[in-house]
Design a protein around this nucleic acid. Sequence first.
DNA 1: GCCGTTTTCGGCCCGACTGTTTTCAGTCG
Length: 571
Amino acid sequence: MKNQVVAEIFNTIADLLDVKGEVFFKTRAYRMAAQTIVTLDEDIEKIANQGRLQTIPGVGAALAEKIKEIVTTGKLKYLERLKKEIPAGVLDLLSIQGLGPRKVAALYKNRGITSIAALKQAASSGQLRDLEGFGEITERNILRGIQLLEKTSGRVLLHVAYEDGMRYLTYLKKCKHITHLSIAGSLRRMKETIGDVDILASSTQPVKVMEVFVSYPEVTSVLAKGTTKSSVLLNDNLQVDLRVVEEKSYGAALQYFTGSKEHNVTLRGIAIRKGYKLNEYGLFEKKTDKYVTGKTEGDIYKKIGFSYIEPELRENRGEFEAAEKKRLPTLVGYDDIRGDFHVHSLWSDGSDSVETLAQAAQQKGYSFIGITDHSQSLRIANGLTEEDIQKKLKEIERLNKKLPDIRILCGTECDIKTDGTLDYPNKVLKQFDFVYIAVHTSFKMEREAMTKRIIRGMTNEYVDFVAHPTGRLISKRDPYDVDLQQLIDAAQEHNVRLEINAFPDRLDLDDTAAKLAKDHGVGFVLGTDSHNSNHMEFMRYGVATARRGWLEKKDILNTYSLSQIEKILGA
DNA sequence: GCCGTTTTCGGCCCGACTGTTTTCAGTCG
């Protein structure tokens, strides 16, 4: 699939044209096309070969030619030309908060700045303040932006933002001037990483609400403060924005500030075609500017002709088509989960006993917990020998009698060796209630060998699930090189479920891969990969990822009743 | 650069806030 390649080139062109000062609509055309192409189910090369490029929305004659060139030669002369005009480092400057294409262009043209390091040097020595449109405050803001980028690379993991956001909400709920209050933005959509936290409130006293907002104890600096919008920085460097609107605009504003940007652009386009105008204040008749609705999101979607679209689906990945045809999935709910399949105990590298974990699961209202310790060759994680397994089985048998309200399932997270054989022989594997297989070694294998390795593991008759199928660690380690499509086909063929690992830096499979797998009839399990009982809280991020992948209750084994699960697993 | 149930030309989402300005450009979402 060259879709990603084409999309990246188009996005780079858009950035370059922006800095060159090209009209906004042209650069947007490149970005829109890139976004569409990357979410296509079909291979762009195939579409190009069949001469159907211009059937892709947002692709006209000019872009079709460019795609053809990329697909056949792997390069694009137009991009090479642009790159000669603007050095690569200049585009890096765009990632600094507060710097857009105009300022970046000014920095490059008037000061010859082509890297973040050079910018930092120039700003700290006061060389930018006499540039037109710049001043001392701009210099300080640039330095702060660079510092922020260095510290957090701009985004934090979902769970960090979620916890910060929830604490902030709890604080704001005490403010009696607020009538409605919600998280918005990418956090409400539960994206795997979050740039900043958006909060929305309705009030008749916005100025007072802003006072309360900026007085939150965890705030270290106030970045902006107006009557409808304020921004602060928390002590962990996360930025939080608050918008305050009137009651009659609350739904419209919630829709607007939840995004995604791509979802909203499409929705507003559709609204216009139907004779409306949609903004954060409400849905209006286009001709008369008369207020139609805006109190709730549901009203707005309904009026424009759709059923309600859940926040996790608002990525412009086909949700409008589905909503129009009444084919939106009924997403798995955060409360539908009846147990956790992936938990490590003291037997391997976890820090809690099986009993402690089982009690924690019971407290969460679960009906089962799967204890999955590592297998023997993973010495670094204290993998279990065959002898250990016998002892562990006995302990679990005893605990199941002692704790009748929760079923403890004895599983394993069994290593897939480099040749695709498993770390335990079949006579051992068959003693477990269920078997996860996983790659923990030799991450750097060639694509073909890695794909074969995992698929061979899946063909073993005792294997039920594949743990963290791509091995990625968000912003730390790339996924190993594996042919996802082949993995999905094998999962379907051998009736093996793929895991959505809920650990915040894994979320593996991710949302798009999960959707792809679902479309091919694959089933799923959720596992937190907990190494202590507190980690079991991470389940919500697994559910969020499942929801973003359009998964329903029936797709996920954790939502089944214990008796159904026992039957399916033969446990 | 794309697109058309008003349009093949002229729109394309737009409002809030900041900082640098003396009335507005740039950035962000």
